[in-house]
Simulated assay, not measured.
Amino acid sequence: MTLEHPGRYPVNCHKAYHAHIYFDQNSVERVTVLCAAIAADFGLSVGRIHEKPVGPHLRWSVQVSFSHRDFDAFIPWLDQQRGDLDVLVHGVTGDNYKDHTDYAYWLGQPAELDLSIFEPSR
């Protein structure tokens, strides 16, 4: 399923966020350097670099966790530094389905997600 908001730039309206940076075998080295810069320059929590699909993500990805306090500095920096990498940015509200649909934004091109693993919100 493709997300509903493919053209929307991320908006700082939640307390917590994830950024999922997508990559492939040709960009593993580049994403590793990018993640090291994120940890060093912003002190953000960077997850494992998954060289396989994980969760709803059908492409290789790495997750960065951050808060609304980091958002205004981190998102423009990430957008500039990502090059041609696609990034899903979403709020973390406790409702995984809405987080990956209603509260989802893209830097780059939207990617397909497997939303069937989440219970749809009522």
Rank of each mutant, 00 (worst) to 15 (best):
residue 13 C to D: 15
residue 72 D to L: 06
residue 55 G to E: 13
residue 119 E to Q: 14
residue 92 V to L: 14
residue 71 F to R: 00
residue 110 P to D: 02
residue 28 V to F: 13
residue 32 T to S: 15
residue 28 V to H: 09
residue 96 N to H: 12
residue 103 Y to F: 15
residue 58 L to I: 03
residue 113 L to D: 02
residue 15 K to N: 14
residue 10 P to I: 05
residue 48 R to S: 10
residue 48 R to A: 14
residue 83 G to M: 04
residue 67 S to R: 10
residue 92 V to P: 01
residue 6 P to E: 03
residue 41 D to T: 05
residue 109 Q to S: 13
residue 114 D to G: 00
residue 7 G to A: 05
residue 84 D to N: 14
residue 59 R to G: 08
residue 20 H to D: 10
residue 109 Q to F: 12
residue 2 T to K: 15
residue 50 H to Q: 04
residue 34 L to G: 09
residue 80 Q to H: 15
residue 12 N to G: 02
residue 56 P to D: 12
residue 53 P to K: 11
residue 101 T to Q: 00
residue 24 D to Y: 02
residue 71 F to E: 00
residue 120 P to L: 01
residue 54 V to A: 06
residue 31 V to D: 11
residue 20 H to L: 07
residue 44 L to W: 08
residue 60 W to M: 14
residue 31 V to K: 05
residue 107 L to R: 07
residue 22 Y to S: 08
residue 61 S to F: 01
residue 11 V to F: 06
residue 108 G to S: 09
residue 29 E to T: 11
residue 101 T to V: 03
residue 29 E to C: 07
residue 63 Q to K: 08
residue 72 D to N: 13
residue 112 E to Y: 06
residue 114 D to F: 00
residue 26 N to D: 15
residue 37 A to E: 15
residue 8 R to L: 08
residue 24 D to M: 01
residue 44 L to S: 03
residue 82 R to Y: 07
residue 47 G to S: 08
residue 65 S to D: 15
residue 39 A to F: 02
residue 4 E to F: 02
residue 10 P to F: 01
residue 69 R to P: 07
residue 41 D to K: 11
residue 111 A to P: 01
residue 67 S to C: 06
residue 75 I to L: 03
residue 83 G to C: 05
residue 93 T to V: 06
residue 93 T to W: 09
residue 26 N to M: 10
residue 88 L to I: 05
residue 65 S to I: 02
residue 18 H to S: 11
residue 58 L to E: 07
residue 91 G to M: 03
residue 122 R to V: 13
residue 24 D to R: 00
residue 109 Q to R: 11
residue 122 R to A: 15
residue 62 V to A: 05
residue 78 L to G: 05
residue 3 L to F: 03
residue 27 S to H: 12
residue 15 K to I: 01
residue 118 F to G: 03
residue 34 L to D: 11
residue 98 K to A: 14
residue 63 Q to S: 10
residue 54 V to T: 10
residue 32 T to C: 08
residue 105 Y to T: 04
residue 58 L to M: 12
residue 32 T to V: 13
residue 105 Y to A: 08
residue 21 I to W: 00
residue 75 I to F: 02
residue 77 W to Q: 12
residue 55 G to T: 04
residue 43 G to I: 02
residue 39 A to H: 11
residue 92 V to I: 15
residue 81 Q to W: 10
residue 116 S to W: 00
residue 68 H to Y: 09
